[in-house]
Amino acid sequence: MTSLSRQLSAIGNNLNQIARALNAGNHAPVSQVLKDVQAANSETRALLRNLRP
């Protein structure tokens, strides 16, 4: 697995953990959930920028 694939997989895992926690009724403050999602979004964008020539 390449470094990029591992990083994308880690981001996906983080988002899945957020979704599982929310679905299980473990509600974090909305501000924290938004921060986590924004962080994952930023990481994804950075990885995508590295793919473009």
Rank of each mutant, 00 (worst) to 15 (best):
S42D: 11
Q17Y: 09
L4V: 00
Q17L: 01
R45S: 12
K35W: 09
R6A: 03
A39C: 01
V37H: 08
R20F: 05
I11K: 05
Q32R: 12
K35D: 15
S5Y: 04
Q7L: 02
A10D: 07
M1Q: 07
G25S: 00
D36T: 01
N14H: 08
Q32A: 10
E43M: 03
A10K: 02
Q38D: 15
Q38N: 15
N16K: 12
N50C: 01
P53L: 02
H27R: 14
N41C: 02
N23I: 04
L51E: 13
A21K: 05
R52D: 13
G25H: 02
V30R: 13
H27Y: 12
L4I: 11
L15G: 06
A21H: 09
L22Q: 13
L8M: 04
M1H: 03
Q32Y: 12
Q17H: 11
S9G: 15
A21C: 08
N23Y: 07
V33L: 08
D36N: 09
N16F: 08
L8D: 14
A46S: 13
A10N: 02
A46M: 08
L34W: 09
A46N: 13
L15R: 05
A10V: 01
T2Q: 01
L48C: 06
A10I: 01
S5H: 10
M1A: 12
P29W: 08
K35H: 08
V33A: 03
L22I: 03
S3N: 11
A24T: 04
S3I: 02
Q7D: 13
V30I: 15
T44D: 10
N50K: 02
P53Y: 13
E43A: 06
Q7T: 01
R6E: 15
S9R: 11
A39I: 02
K35S: 14
H27A: 15
A46L: 03
L8I: 00
S31Y: 05
L34Q: 13
A19Q: 05
L22H: 08
D36G: 01
S31D: 14
P29F: 04
